[in-house]
Amino acid sequence: MRCQPENPHQVYNWLKNKQACLLCDEPADAATAICTNCEAELPWLGGHCQRCALPLPDSGLTCGGCLRNPPSFERVEAPWRYAFPVDSLITRFKHQAKWPMGRLLGELLSQHLLHAFDEGLPRPDLLLPVPLAGRRQRQRGFNQALMLAQWLSTALQLPWQDAWLQRVIDTPAQQQLDAATRKRNLRRAFALAPQSRVAGLHLALVDDVLTTGATAESLARLLRKAGAARVDVYCLARTPKPGD
């Protein structure tokens, strides 16, 4: 770290700061806090469902779940499978307030999305972070989805709005629940604020992990019923099917 030693009120000089990789502590090769070797070894998603991003043996396929019951969202964009070390980074970001780890993942997600836009993915009009249950937000002190949306907004030059989606029922934590229980938990859990204006807009929900897709489906259905033209989902990681 370089400061200004001649100044009695020392100021951190970001321009002269040399980043270290957050995974191996070796010097980072670029502006992001990860070295080339560690970035290459992240659990990149690879083949996946072109609708919900479920990991599959090949790209360009649609999973059986999306064929039987097409979701209300159009497409999920996620760079990684929910596996080590991404799962550890996300957990430390969410539950231990290790914000630099979240910021690193958010920067890499923005790079992924910029590449997807170049490849033809339509740019949304607005980013909407998934709202966190009030009790958990008070315990945690922040909403990780909102922080991701703010970082993505800067990198992608897209506006964000955190007042339109509301969590009106404080549902139990979803992590250890199966898909059916998650869906039951989320019935009537969300609502649109009276001032929301989603009609005709292409919206992108922002969250950290997509597991069963129950939360994304509930919110996307709500937005589509209110007139949204399209809903996509941007997240850091997608979980595989149990047992895969």
Rank of each mutant, 00 (worst) to 15 (best):
A30Y: 03
P129C: 07
P100M: 02
K18T: 13
K16Q: 10
E119V: 06
C66D: 00
A145I: 03
G65H: 13
Q139I: 06
A199R: 15
K183D: 03
R187W: 02
F142Y: 14
A28Q: 00
A83V: 02
E39S: 14
H112L: 03
G227R: 06
L42R: 10
E77K: 00
A83F: 00
L148N: 07
D118C: 07
Q157P: 00
W14F: 14
C35F: 08
L23I: 11
A180C: 07
S218A: 15
R2M: 00
N7K: 12
A78D: 12
V86M: 13
L219F: 02
W14P: 08
L186N: 05
R182Q: 14
P5V: 05
A163N: 11
I34Y: 12
E74T: 13
K18V: 08
V198W: 10
R51H: 12
L114P: 01
Q166G: 05
H9V: 14
G102Y: 08
A228T: 08
G120M: 10
R51Q: 15
S72Y: 13
P240T: 07
G47W: 07
N7W: 12
R238D: 03
P27L: 13
S196L: 05
R221N: 12
L192H: 10
N185Y: 09
G46Q: 04
R2E: 05
L113K: 03
L223K: 10
A216K: 09
L67H: 04
A53T: 07
A149N: 01
Q139A: 12
F142W: 11
D207R: 01
L236S: 11
Q137N: 07
L61Q: 15
G60T: 08
G200K: 14
S153R: 04
L205I: 09
A226Q: 11
T91Q: 14
A179D: 05
Y82C: 05
R123Q: 15
W151A: 11
N185L: 06
L42A: 05
P43I: 09
L201N: 02
P172R: 04
N185M: 01
L223G: 10
V198G: 08
N7Q: 15
T62Q: 14
D232I: 07
P71Y: 07
R68I: 03
R2H: 01
P27E: 12
V168R: 14
S72E: 08
Q139C: 04
A189E: 01
E41G: 04
Q175D: 01
D29P: 00
L114V: 04
R140V: 06
I90Q: 05
H95S: 01
